[in-house]
Amino acid sequence: MKTNDFAKLHPVILFTYFTAVILFSMFFMHPVFLAISFFCGFLWAVSLAPRETLRFTLKCILPLAVLMTVINPMINHAGLTVLLYVNDRPITLEACAYGAASAAMFSSVLLWFSCSNRIMTAEKFISLFGRAAPSFSLLLSMVMRFVPRFKAQTRAIAEAQDGLGRGVDSGSLPTRAKNGMKILSILTTWALENGVITADSMRARGYGLPGRGRFQIYRFDSRDKWMLTILSALIFAVLFGFIKGENSIRYFPFLSLPPFSPFSFFLYICYFLLCSYPMLFNAVCEVKYHGGF
């Protein structure tokens, strides 16, 4: 995929989308729903950042998933279908299934979060909260400004101390710890001192005058309106199915799935459309605006 049009949608849509998908992924333990969420999440994460996703999946998600699948039946002995006994304790089919399902849930949530981190930049979050709490959004923006400076200053101080032969890398352990503490304490002073200058700069530019306005860099256009409508329709359909109990599942004492019906089939399609929404949207945009693939 060449361009990422989904990321250009209004932050409100993005936020709604990720909140819905991540919450659904967390609570729907139905195997079909789990599979859809995992499949779409993985595919999208790969299309966003192939190398990082594969590395993240192999190094982090896979070992965790295996661990969860293996450990759950070892410690959870509920369930009626006993497969075998280990140390006189029953290993049940239900516990195995539950372990696998939790692992799938956990993995897809992680994948969705990795997508969300790439799309929902801090800037978009800030603009989002700006509506509800303007001062909070300014605070967030200032924090985002401060964090890199704080890091840089920490590095500069550590290096300056190193240049005097009292860095955190030299001397015995207690000395090093003491040097580290000193750096931490002076960082506080530095932050407070320089905060005074920032405060002056804010006051000099009229901060604190009544009736503060807000600059919206994102515009909610007609495309956003349409996309939010479609998105809401999908979310409501899935929620309706949830209320009807279509995507609930019982693992203990024995596995019980709601019966398949045309309605459940309809729900699967809705959920699939919801989860692959960004990819479908990008594909449509690719054809419409950028002249095909």
Binding site: S141, M144, M202, F215
Partner: peptide, 23 residues
Amino acid sequence: EQAVTDKVWHELAFGLENLGLES
């Protein structure tokens, strides 16, 4: 220390926001 916000556009807009101008 003078720059208050994290983005260039926000920094340019900061004073104008304080004055209560429209977007």
